[in-house]
Design a protein around this nucleic acid. Structure first.
Lengths: 404, 404
DNA sequence: TCCAGAGATGAATCCACCC
DNA sequence: GGGGTGGATTCATCTCTGG
């Protein structure tokens, strides 16, 4: 919640030791160039200098910064250093020195598709993020991804054991059938991340050079911190890190030497909730009020989501009797009656002839549901989760009765 | 065409200067472990040692080797140094020293899918290959790859020119139609290579630990050498580099300290066994047979999708009565009866106590559905699309009746 | 406490077999 | 015989145990 315009190393010294959970550091890459970018409306120009008298001069600066970062980190904290091939090897030598090679966790490769150029050689399409922890007791949240399409079901479900020859084989029960035991969660996230460089629609973005995608920062913050933790970006530029931190309910501290950059960051943080450009920047997958779950239900009927309406979550793409069809998904804390009331109220001005209400839990009061309500102009359907859950409960009751 | 059993640095010294076009160097990675693997028929055991008294000891060895490699390279030649995160930063510092940082060309990232393990942190899924040239006049053959599916066709085919305002625009002929002139070749190969890891059961596997896929070596040889050029691998192991060189009509020299390794290489060169994996040829997407629609339904209940099974589309993350819950989504061309039969058949071996069938269209035959089938262990639920569609049809009939 | 060695991990892949 | 599916084998592994 703090933004500071000032010299990074000097400001870092003012921060108390052992107070930060996560540092993301995105220093100049030692490109020996100046980086300038104008905003699209040509009104502003953001720039930073990346010219150094020598590599040692550059490393001196980074070294001091890293040492301060280590000091302010909690013992469960981690640092992510973003760089590219220009100086990555020297930077990692520094990291080994300051954090210890035993605390090296990962070399994360960020890959992206890029416009080609006519350079002789291979097209550069990645940058590197070094992940070091302060101690071996660092925080880490595993993210699980889908299984490879080539993986077969048995691999996922069956248990294995060593056979007589010490080779691994499927475990069989006495009757020779394969044993199915544990629940599987998916494949742990790897150290190669393919995240689009910039959304083509994101032309309205901040205009700051070397701006990183929010998605990249979100992933870093997710795996290495918890809610309400403190995220620090000592060279915050346009403030992408802090935007991601705010979105994920982390506290944040940002430092940048340029007052322009701090102003821009301030603006991005404020506009977070309302800004149109932010939506574009984060891509189609961004949803502000919608939970993942609600979004998935809307997706499955290819509905158009609506973000800023208290009663309506989305609309069907198709009209009914020439009028839009509004949709509401019952919220966790509301009865079906309440959900219905909100949907009807908000739909009044839209002149809907049909409304769809998705029931997600059994707080239903005296309300008709399912096909029974065909007389009215509200269709109530049950979410898959609800159906499955409801059915399971009944099955288990049935099972218990049979046992008793 | 030469295979030498002997000490790498000693044997390199015997090679005349400026005679080699391409060096591929795959030294131990400084893992501080021994690497042992038995052949599949258990008849032979190949191994190499990767234990060093210190990092300096290790770097000393590599440094001498690199210096010799530079000496034997032609001025148009290049070296590819294969390593992983263990010591990549130190190795690149050496390369900068010996070849000069101006001759750094690329940091190639080889990524692959891998068997996961239970480590805390991200799953390692890449290795690094440093590409340095001896001079700026190095040989390089650009390989062109396919355009991204999101690339606009017009951008691929049409010609552009500066318009009156100095902005780039599509070139038009006198009648105002876009001009199609040059043949576009595709997107230049990037520095991130996704190549499947050699399968444990692949015929190509020789039983040598750390064996590399032939495709990886083929790509390196293709971009940095021409036919009849001389390829050198001073630590050739099982000889993958030489196999690739022979396949691409290059001359080759291989050195390894182990006579066993040289014998194996000899045998592989005679037999030239290469497994052309299905995955490589057809691409991963050929396995992906889930439609967007089906995926969205699975997503909305947070199910784990399954790709390679005729009857099952996915599983719930949670087990029921200690057993997995299988899911099938009714396909467009099948009745609910057929869908049920396939789901039941495939679920039999998985010991499922509960199956979920998602009805997506009304071809239902004489089959019970919904809560009516609660006696059995199949839960049939209707897709949202089906529910909405069904309801609308009834409403419209009702409306038409009222009008007539 | 440290190190070596045994044991456990768990999905990716191509193979082989089965209808 | 050809498409699909269960199986075998691996880890420049990872973790735990015992001396």
């Amino acid at each position: 919640m703090t933004l500071i315009a000032g010299n990074c190393n000097a400001e870092l010294k003012k921060i108390e030791a052992n107070t930060i959970d996560l540092v993301y550091l995105d220093p100049p890459f030692f490109t020996q160039r100046d980086h300038i970018l104008k905003t699209r409306d040509n009104t502003k120009e953001y720039s930073f200098e990346d010219k150094w008298s020598s590599i040692n001069d550059y490393l001196e600066f980074i070294k001091e910064c890293l040492a301060e970062c280590r000091r302010v980190l909690k013992s469960t904290g981690s640092i992510f250093l973003h760089c590219d091939k220009s100086a990555s090897h020297y930077l990692r030598v520094l990291l080994d020195e300051i954090f210890g090679s035993a605390n090296f966790q990962s070399e994360i490769i960020w890959t992206y598709k890029r416009w080609s150029n006519s350079k002789k050689g291979l097209l550069d399409a990645h940058q590197t993020i070094y992940f070091y922890s302060k101690t071996e007791y660092f925080k880490f949240n595993t993210i699980y991804t889908n299984y490879s399409p080539t993986t077969n079901v048995d691999q996922i479900l069956q248990t294995r054991e060593r056979n007589g020859n010490g080779k691994s084989a499927y475990k069989l029960d006495e009757e020779g059938n394969p044993v199915i035991e544990r629940e599987k969660k998916g494949v742990p996230l790897s150290d190669v991340w393919s995240i689009p460089y910039l959304n083509p629609k994101a032309k309205e973005r901040a205009g700051y050079p070397t701006q990183k995608p929010v998605l990249l920062l979100e992933r870093i913050i997710e795996i290495a911190s918890s809610e309400n933790d403190v995220v620090l970006d000592p060279l915050c530029g346009s403030g992408t890190t802090l935007v991601a931190a705010k979105l994920l309910n982390r506290k944040y501290i940002g430092i940048d030497i340029s007052q322009e950059a701090i102003n821009l960051t301030q603006k991005r943080l404020e506009e977070l909730v309302v800004s149109r450009s932010f939506l574009l920047e984060k891509g189609e997958k961004s949803y502000l009020n919608k939970t993942d779950y609600e979004q998935k239900i809307l997706d499955s009927i290819e509905a158009i989501p609506v973000q800023r309406n208290g009663g309506i979550d989305g609309f069907l793409k198709e009209y009914y009797l020439g009028k839009p069809v509004s949709i509401r998904i019952q919220k966790n804390d509301e009865t079906l009656e309440e959900a219905k009331a909100r949907l009807v109220k908000s739909s009044k001005t839209k002149d809907c002839r049909l409304m769809i209400l998705v029931r997600t839990n059994p707080k239903r009061a005296k309300f008709f549901f399912g096909e029974e309500s065909s007389e009215s102009n509200i269709l109530v359907i049950d979410s898959y989760d609800y159906l499955i859950d409801h059915w399971l409960t009944r099955k288990i009751k049935h099972y218990e009765l049979a046992l008793s």
